Simulated scan of single mutants.
Amino acid sequence: MSEQNEQPENRLRRELPAEVPPVGPEPGETSGEKPGEPLTGRQRLVKGLWPPRFTRAQLIVAVLLFGLGFGLAVQVASNSDTDSALRGARQEDLVRILDELDSRTQRLEDEKQGLEKQRSELQSSSDQAAEARKQTAEKERQLGILAGTVAAQGPGITMTVADTKGTVKADMLLDAVQELRAAGAEAIQLNGVRVVANTYFSDSGNGVSVDGNKINAPYRFQVIGKPEDLEPALNIPGGVVQTLEKEQATVTVERSGKIVVDALRQAKQPDYARSSSQ
């Protein structure tokens, strides 16, 4: 029989391609299901979840959430350590800490009252120009002491740190300076170097460099301020003295009615800042 006489349905069946057999698992893999059987709900769920598919946005969000969680965990751990230290402190240590907080509050209140007094004197003075000059001169003297361009003397303490093991580092001395400032220190001198607001510390061989000046142990702090505030601030639990003693350093603190801070710094003219009144 020729192709022309062949039935249409037979010719159509002969032209269709053979059915493609289902693709089975790769060698060494198991599909977990029999060929030809429909997938169950659990199998479809597993195939939808694994392997996981992440977009770039999801990865960024995940990293940010991880960082946030890590930061919160560190903060909680830090607070827990502080709370544990306070819970384990002796009663006299807790009283000392409270006294130090009260002293700082009182200093801030005294400063506020002093500023209010200056304002009242300036407003009530018959010669406001003369009063303004007087207050300006006094302010200049105070700023000179803070900037280290003027020598100062007054009551305070002397703290000596003997470091025979060479374990005291620059950051420990910086912590001592910050604690003294927080306790109301008005002028600080360390081994003949005046310590001011922009003073920097760095490790230098077996010693420490202060504003580029190499100093060696023993480290001698001469501090002007109220001795009743300065000494307790150094001796609080976990404070400067305790930290240095853990490093096998020996610390002695002595009160004095007269401390002389005579190391001076040269006044530096700012490169860019100018008075707004000019």
Rank of each mutant, 00 (worst) to 15 (best):
F66R: 04
S31I: 07
R53H: 11
T167C: 04
S125W: 04
D83V: 00
V23C: 01
S78G: 13
A197L: 09
G32Y: 00
G166H: 07
P155E: 12
R265V: 10
N213W: 02
G148I: 03
R13I: 06
Q128G: 04
D262C: 00
L39H: 08
S276M: 14
G184Y: 04
D83W: 14
Q189C: 05
V223Q: 05
V251S: 03
A62N: 08
I259Q: 13
Q113G: 08
G144C: 10
E254P: 06
L101I: 04
R96H: 02
N206W: 03
T55K: 04
S125T: 04
G41T: 14
F54H: 14
Q242A: 15
R220E: 04
E26R: 01
T160S: 05
S78A: 11
G48K: 01
V168N: 02
A57S: 12
L244T: 09
F70G: 14
Q106E: 13
K268H: 01
L45K: 10
E33S: 04
A233H: 06
V23L: 14
V150D: 01
A18P: 00
V46P: 03
D262N: 12
T158L: 09
L122G: 14
T158H: 13
Q91A: 15
D102R: 10
A147S: 13
N216D: 10
M1W: 12
T160D: 12
T40K: 09
E138Y: 06
L39M: 08
V63S: 12
A85E: 14
G71M: 10
I60F: 08
G67N: 10
Q266C: 07
V241W: 00
A132D: 09
T250G: 09
S84K: 06
L86V: 15
G41N: 11
L173A: 04
P218I: 01
L98D: 14
I97T: 04
G28A: 13
E9H: 13
T82P: 00
K214F: 07
L190S: 01
D171L: 01
Q118D: 03
Q75P: 01
I157L: 12
V195Y: 06
S275D: 14
G184K: 02
E111P: 01
T40E: 03
P27F: 00
L94K: 13
G48L: 05
L94Y: 03
L98P: 08
L264S: 03
I215W: 09
D211A: 10
K112T: 11
D229K: 05
K47Q: 00
T164G: 10
K34N: 09
L190C: 01
P155R: 10
E228N: 11
P27C: 03
A249R: 03
E247K: 13
G24V: 00
Y219I: 05
D211S: 11
V150Y: 03
A129T: 04
E231T: 09
Q135I: 02
K117W: 11
A183E: 10
M159W: 04
A187D: 06
T199A: 03
F66C: 05
M172Q: 07
K165M: 09
L49V: 14
V61E: 15
Y200A: 05
D110A: 02
V261L: 12
R255D: 13
V76E: 08
L264A: 06
P51M: 12
Q178Y: 08
T199N: 12
T250W: 00
V46I: 13
S84Q: 08
E131G: 06
Y200K: 11
P22A: 13
S276Y: 12
G69M: 06
N235W: 02
L12Y: 00
Q58S: 06
D81L: 12
E231R: 10
Q91Y: 08
